[in-house]
Amino acid sequence: MHSFGYRANAVLTFAVTILAVICTIASISDNFNSATPTAEVQVSNINWFQKQPNGDDVVGLTLNISANLQSLFTWNTKQVFVFLAAEYETPQNSLNQVSLWDGIIPAKEHAKFVIQTTNKYHFTDQGSNLRGKEFNLTLHWHVMPKTGKMSANRIVMTGYRLPDKYR
């Protein structure tokens, strides 16, 4: 009844249960954090704007991104993945989301930043609809916890209108 194996089993079971409870509480505690991130993005230049040989439009941009995502960090936050997407509608597609830039923020100290960057991924349309097209710039973030539930949200920012002609 009180053999070594029996006691070892009881201790192990108890330890695992406590660990599970603490992980759950840590994940739930994230809900009490009300985040108020701010961000601003400007398209400072259209570097190039062409039609690819396969008929799809492609754009190269320079972006100024400034953001303060420090309020997203809690004690259960491992990292915040942040990305900037262009969102627009075309006659063919009801929604196009194209990621232009992304980054991983490993700690709260790095969550306030100002950068100037060209688009990291090709801004390519499915087809040739980008001339004179107005698109929304949206900053999305994805909070990855140390344990538990992941969460995501975004800020939709002012749009930008692409030029009427290729260059």
């Binding site: 993945f81 990305f83 006659p91 063919q92 597609n93 009801s94 929604l95 196009n96 989301q97 194209v98 990621s99 992304d102 991983i104 991924y121 499915q126 994805h142």
Partner: peptide, 21 residues
């Protein structure tokens, strides 16, 4: 992770492009 989404107007079908962080 999904980095690009194109959703069709009528059918609602999606084209998705992914990338590892």
């Amino acid at each position: 992770r999904v980095i690009k989404v194109h959703e069709r107007q009528e059918t609602g079908e999606v084209d998705v492009l992914t990338k590892g962080d």
